[in-house]
Design a protein around this nucleic acid. Structure first.
Length: 580
DNA sequence: TAGTAGTGACTAACATTTGCCCACAAATG
């Protein structure tokens, strides 16, 4: 029973309680507990084992008891009782657009509808229009909604959404009646995956801008359109929405649209405590005096007595409290990365030569580049034999000679952690390298104990400096290995190993939650492109985003270190005999 | 239901737009 499964169970309970019509605070309690768990890098099972369930934010006595039952007996009586009352299959109806808890309860109680197929049949037979508050139009919308369910894509990786967002933004910014347009929502907060695109524009003519927006060539359907916002479906099923506001309201509007919902609720509570009501339009004094318009986000935060909070932190994970205490973290910026320590070349499965990689790295301002081609054990990628490493060393030296002091090239390898837990190179081969990345690629579905032990073995090898993309996950769909981070993180800390934040937007591995936990423990992290082509060297900003979301101090990112410090760290870790 | 204040009670998650039906549910951050 992993955290994700527990979150789903708690949300199921909340959904069913909502359909049942329970008091809102009970429902919120389950949702809050689910949120609290989502912010934990540790497994809930660990808390349970240690008798610490109630230390999880949002988990109190009642939910702790239910989790205890879940771990002990594999089920929760309360949930069984609940599903006897309210069929669990009703949860699926909530995913139909325009079907909320009230309408689900209505069709269930009045028509006996318990699942999607029955809902569709009832709509087709014109039964929905017989219900109070529903008519022919609602019926049509619900049928369309059911049809849309199958083609509607789920969350998509950030890196896939950003180009679309940029295209829409450029389109809006080119309109004469648009004075400003920005990306908002989870994409601005740089979440690893996003559900829809949120855009905000400051405009002098709302009607025309909204019309232009819904007329964009990529728009396949208009989901909704009013005086201040419009929502559309784009090619491929991605949804986008645009809010338009007068320029003097842009600050409150952008702040609102950026979210997260939890962060906004926190800010609005803060506003109320100071005698204001905060909305996307203005900060309105409760004493009836004139609303205060904010053209910038900084003004909004300033009126609330807070410093501006970077979007990446706005997840209601303690940032408002930290801001109040003057303890917001100093965040990493892309320009602070001066090395890339995990890149590939044509010596394994890369598509660019060492020289091409080095030239591009230097152009981008990097001072250090490690060429980390795969080891031979990973059959699919033309990995290097020990002999090939020696050959490659000649080439690295030649390119180094050509580039002089402008960039330092390091001899490295991404060593496979084999299915049996052994590294792909013997220690004497590893010792020849300047820096070693060890990664899992195969047998990622091994049982928790086995794959954890495998990674621990790599962490404890004194030649290993960085663990590459630790979990091996692929966004949006392939989960990472079932690693026991409660063993991995302390072991990595003890060994002084840096854990990678792989900047490939399909990986972003470690994720923000685990990276934050490791950083809080004092661990080192490394942001690398894992580039297989010189064009991909530029994508480390996605990794920077993860580090920012993880509150990591720049100094704990070894890629911010200069050559002297990095080499010093490597030499203290031992046992590399540089090819020089 | 959680959290807190204080052992049984009280408070807590904000503010808005849209659309369909004729007041309200759903959806948005």
């Amino acid at each position: 029973m992993n955290n994700q499964q527990i979150i789903e169970i708690l949300n199921l309970i909340a959904d069913l309680l909502q359909i049942k019509g329970e008091v809102i605070y009970k429902i919120l309690a389950y949702r809050k507990a689910a949120e609290g768990i989502a912010g934990q890098a540790r497994e809930v099972r660990e808390y349970w084992r240690d008798g610490q369930l109630e230390s999880i934010p949002g988990v109190g006595k009642a939910i702790a008891e239910k989790l205890d039952e879940l771990f002990t007996n594999g089920k929760i009586q309360y949930l069984d009782k609940l599903t006897a009352e309210v069929p669990a299959s009703l949860q699926s109806l909530l995913s139909v657009p325009d079907m909320g808890p009230k309408k689900v309860a209505l069709v269930w109680k009045q028509l006996g509808v318990t699942n999607l197929a029955e809902l569709q049949r009832a709509a087709e037979q014109g039964q929905l229009r017989t219900l109070a508050g529903m008519g022919e139009k609602s019926e049509g919308k619900i049928l369309a909604g059911i049809a849309a369910l199958s083609r509607r894509s789920g969350r998509i990786p950030l890196g896939q959404a950003i180009p679309v967002a940029e295209e829409l933004l450029a389109y809006l910014k080119a309109l004469p009646m648009v004075t400003q347009a920005e990306l908002a929502g989870s994409a601005r907060r740089q979440r690893e995956t996003i559900g829809d695109l949120d855009l905000v524009a400051a405009v002098t003519d709302a009607k025309t801008v909204l019309y232009k927006f819904v007329s964009h060539p990529k728009v396949v359907a208009v989901v909704g359109q009013g005086d201040t916002k419009a929502s559309v479906e784009l090619e491929g099923g991605l949804r986008a929405q645009l809010w338009v506001h007068p320029p003097e309201h842009f600050g409150t509007a952008l702040q609102y649209a950026t979210g997260s919902q939890g962060h906004n609720v926190r800010l609005r509570e803060r506003a109320l405590s100071l005698g204001y009501s905060l909305s996307e339009h203005a900060l309105t004094p409760l004493d009836g005096s004139a609303p205060i318009a904010c053209a910038t986000e900084a003004e909004v935060y300033a009126y609330l007595g807070l410093p501006w909070i970077a979007p990446e932190l706005r997840e209601d994970r303690g940032e408002v409290q930290a801001a109040l205490a003057g303890k917001l973290p100093t965040l990493l910026t892309p320009a602070q990365l001066i090395s890339d320590l995990h890149t590939h070349s044509t010596w394994s499965d890369g598509h660019s030569s060492i020289r091409e990689m080095a030239m591009t790295a230097r152009e981008q301002g990097l001072k250090i580049l490690a060429i980390a081609d795969h080891s031979h054990g990973l059959g699919i990628v033309n990995g290097m034999s020990p002999a090939a490493i020696l050959e490659r060393a000649h080439e690295i030296r030649a390119v180094q000679a050509e580039m002089g002091a402008s960039i330092l090239l390091l001899h490295s390898a991404e060593v496979e952690i084999r299915a049996d837990g052994e590294l792909d190179y013997a220690d004497d081969v590893l010792a020849q390298l300047d820096i070693v990345v060890a990664s899992l690629h195969v047998s990622l579905r091994q049982p928790r104990e086995q794959i954890t032990a495998r990674l621990l073995n790599a962490i404890r090898n004194p030649h290993v400096d960085i663990i590459g993309h630790p979990t091996g996950r692929l966004l949006p769909d392939r989960d990472g290995a079932d690693l026991d981070m409660e063993q991995i993180l302390p072991a990595a800390l003890q060994a002084g190993v840096a854990l990678e934040i792989n900047a490939n937007w399909k990986r972003l591995d470690l994720n923000d939650v685990s990276a934050r936990r490791y950083a809080e423990m004092g661990g080192l992290l490394s942001i690398n492109s894992d580039a297989h082509h010189f064009n991909a060297l530029a994508r480390t900003h996605y990794g920077v985003a993860v580090a920012r979301r993880a509150w990591v101090a720049p100094d704990q990112i070894i890629n911010t270190w200069n050559a002297e410090r990095l080499l010093n760290w490597l030499s203290q870790r031992g046992i590399h005999q540089s090819f020089g």
